[in-house]
Nucleic acid binder design. Structure first.
Length: 458
RNA sequence: CGGGGCGUAGCGCAGUCUGGUAGCGCGUACGGUUCGGGACCGUAAGGUCGGAGGUUCGAAUCCUCUCGCCCCGACCA
């Protein structure tokens, strides 16, 4: 097994498929079309944009031999596709009528990392990269901002993961971009996770790859481009946002399995009776839909395991709701329900017949859980967020771990670097919703008119 | 690449100092009894002790070399 590569087993991959479908729908709703570009990129392409090469060369995997011979020109395994897409855009675009060109690609990429971490930083990962070309800078800027907003909305409504939207500082900018924007998520240990980025590429790649169009006045101009991406890192974010001591917690909108029914019985005739009832409930519930997907209901009829063992098994996997069905329940016309997370986690008896059917109850519970998970995550973040105005206090707090801090910063990258060197804490973003406030840089004291978000980051 | 640690059953480990039949827990398979918060009994399968060389009557254990992995210090979604 190559270091940094990962296998995503079915349960995890099912989560990825749901993330993917949801995002893909959002991209298509905003006019983007999917396409696919090659895995291998000629080295010379990467070298065309100066800052891009410099940024990526330390983490490139390069193919030097193929077909039993050394290649004349090495190929890099794509770390991202701006260059090869720039190459094709220059062939596809001639006129302002060809713009905007709105392309997305679902692909794997490889970045040779020194330190890897499951889902959060892997050598190979799956992602989506949007690449667009526009006739004006303003339009490209709007596009980049629109896509970051889509990421933000997606993270909060589908993943139940609160994020802070903002601009990256120059030192954290994507190699080759004019400006990078980010959604920063809060992990339960106080660290930040860059969960998605969107870049205003300006004309940098247009110039490097000669992507020109003729405008309405008949003049040639370079296109204005954007790129934006989220990756399987989101699964890591999901895990580190919602999991608890009992294991994984999956928001209903992303759950591969929504409900598990654990049958409880002693005698053989009870078993038959209970499984029959469980199957009826299963069929009934599976008529529901959660988001774009049918509700998935599993019956755990494995023999040789006691119910308690099954409870722990499904909790570990994050299934939102467990239903227990035993002889006592059948007698009383009820079923026991136990939610995995949310405000109503107490085990409750639900009547099988009544004014409100089981389906309605469960759909309501799924909605509530989705909301509760978001609120709980937001509360955790708020509890570990603070304003800090003295560097001594800052160092003191971060010597013990990480929090989200809001501090004044003058905008000078030297002050930013000093903090990073001394504390490993970085500026995660300049939040869009930061309020105007007069203050002094935490390092040099020079004036600052708003606070930036700082944290240790994955 | 510098410092530290570890390679023994699918997983987690003991055994190494002081050489003498390769073990324990979990898991797995089969049979039985169980079943409302991690069941129990019985039986069984499963090992090039990371690799190579050496010392020895005898090496998981001692010596030499080697490979791999993990943690800590310099890059990044």
């Amino acid at each position: 097994m190559v270091k940094g590569c990962m296998v995503i087993k079915p349960n995890g991959y099912a989560v990825w498929e749901k993330l993917q479908r949801d995002l893909d729908t959002r991209f298509k709703e905003t006019g983007h079309k999917n396409a696919y570009f090659p895995l291998l990129i000629p080295m010379s392409f990467i070298q065309k944009e100066a800052e891009h090469v410099e940024g990526f060369s330390p983490e490139l995997a390069v193919v030097t031999h193929a077909g039993g011979k050394e290649l004349e020109e090495p190929y890099v395994v794509r770390p991202t596709s701006e260059t090869i897409i720039g190459h094709y855009f220059s062939k596809w675009i001639q006129s302002w009528r060809d713009l905007p060109l709105l392309i997305n690609q679902w692909a794997n990429v490889m970045r040779w990392e020194l330190k890897t971490r499951m889902f959060l930083r892997t050598g190979e990962f799956l992602w989506q990269e949007g690449h667009t070309a526009h006739s004006t800078h303003k339009e490209a800027q709007e596009e980049a901002r629109r896509m970051l907003n889509i990421y933000g909305d997606f993270a909060e409504t589908t993943m139940a993961m609160p994020v802070i939207k903002g601009d990256k500082t120059d030192s954290e900018r994507f190699a080759g971009a004019l400006k990078s924007m980010t959604i920063e998520a809060f992990m339960q240990n106080g660290m930040a996770l860059q969960a998605g980025t969107s870049h205003d590429l300006g004309q940098n790649f247009g110039k490097a790859f000669d992507v020109k169009f003729q405008n309405k006045d008949g003049e040639e101009e370079f296109v204005w481009q954007t790129s934006w991406g989220v990756s399987t890192r989101l699964i890591g974010g999901l895990i580190m946002t919602h999991s608890d001591d009992n294991g994984f917690v999956v928001p209903p909108k992303l759950a591969p399995v929504h409900v598990v029914i654990v049958p409880i019985y002693r005698k053989e005739e009870q078993r038959a009776q209970i499984l029959e009832a469980a199957e009826r409930i299963q069929q009934d519930l599976q008529k529901n839909r959660i988001g774009d997907w049918p509700m998935v209901v599993e019956i755990d009829d494995r023999e040789g395991y006691k119910p308690g063992n099954k409870f722990y098994y499904w909790e570990k996997r994050g299934v939102p709701l467990r239903l227990e069905l035993g002889p006592r329940d059948l007698e009383n016309g009820q079923i026991m329900s136990k939610a995995r997370a949310g405000k109503s986690v107490e085990k409750t008896a639900w009547p099988l017949q009544g004014d409100e059917g089981l389906s309605e109850k469960i759909m309501k519970l799924m909605n509530d859980m989705q909301r509760d998970l978001y609120e709980a995550a937001l509360n955790r973040r708020e509890k570990m967020s603070m304003r800090i105005d003295s560097y001594d206090e800052f160092k003191q707090i971060y010597s013990k771990g990480s929090v989200f801090s809001h501090v004044h910063w003058c905008g000078d990258s030297a002050c930013e670097a000093k903090i990073k060197d001394e504390t490993t804490v970085t500026i995660r973003c300049i939040p869009w919703d930061a309020e105007e406030e007069k203050g002094g840089c935490i390092i040099c004291g020079k004036p600052s008119n708003k606070r930036v978000l700082m944290a240790k980051a994955y």
